[in-house]
Design a protein around this nucleic acid. Sequence first.
DNA 1: ATATGAACAGACTGTTCATTT
DNA 2: AAATGAACAGTCTGTTCATAT
Lengths: 119, 119
Amino acid sequence: MNHFLTKQRAILKVYLISLIERKKMYGLQYLNELRETFKPYGYVPKHSEIYKALHELTSEGVVYRTRKLRSEDKEGFQEIIYYQFTEKGYEKGQLYKRQVKTDLERSRDIIEKVLKDNY
Amino acid sequence: MNHFLTKQRAILKVYLISLIERKKMYGLQYLNELRETFKPYGYVPKHSEIYKALHELTSEGVVYRTRKLRSEDKEGFQEIIYYQFTEKGYEKGQLYKRQVKTDLERSRDIIEKVLKDNY
DNA sequence: ATATGAACAGACTGTTCATTT
DNA sequence: AAATGAACAGTCTGTTCATAT
């Protein structure tokens, strides 16, 4: 494993864990949240990335999915999928976040060093 | 162009430009320098990355190559390739560094935000 | 073993297509 | 149009192979 800067997938997963801590949401809601989050930085997450991140958290046993039918006024029934922590999910999520934190700090240190060394 | 964190190729090119500003060197010398630089961060640049970065700087007209024969005591003649700025190379290099600086600062801001938002 | 380079493979991310309501 | 998902394509990086001294 060669380390450079933190991968975007890891960062998205950290945000998703934090969001799931607060509120049970579904895919496109997370997408919109995260697009708002990164708007000032010119980074626009793609929907496939969010879904892949959610799928990973699911297969890693951090969260589980519940299908629900969204009954809207006009439209019919649209199936949406909510995510929440499994029994051990919260702890697993915290562990993952801690690991990524170390990686983020290392990345920040690298960037600081690059700026210091070259400018 | 979607922006997330700065790519390692860009960072290596910035370091190479800075190194070429100071001293005319050849490929594996840059590699060793950069391995020392990133040693504390667990990142070990690969030789192919350095060569690709040098090739890019060459085809972008920032540097040019000069072949020299290294006559060592025991060994025979090993051809090595030195890099130095073209006529407009220094300026081009500075321009590139400025562009990457903006990107590095944005990346640092993103990482700071991720740390602030999730921990 | 040092030095350079290219070919190939794998990982990561983005774009497009498919399906349903 | 909103929502989910998968397939496919492109890019970036790492590993391996080739060549020469």
